[in-house]
Amino acid sequence: MSLVAKLYNNVLRRSSTYALAIVTGAFFFERGFDMATEHLYSEINKGKLWKDIKHNYAPAE
């Protein structure tokens, strides 16, 4: 059984498991996407953000 067929038979075939797959997929996608874009944004703005200068004013936590 190919991977696609396995996926179809076990997950996408029933509405219950399909809905569950959407919800968990959304959760993990959003976490991953947020972390990726946050990382990209702080790379673009390296040295300018508050977290880059915070160590000058606050004792290390």
């Binding site: 944004y41 673009i44 703005n45 300018k48 953000l49 880059d52 200068i53």
Partner: peptide, 12 residues
């Protein structure tokens, strides 16, 4: 330095 489309303000 904050002119760019994705450029933040310079917090220092």
């Amino acid at each position: 330095s904050h002119n760019g489309m994705f450029s933040s303000l310079d917090h220092a």
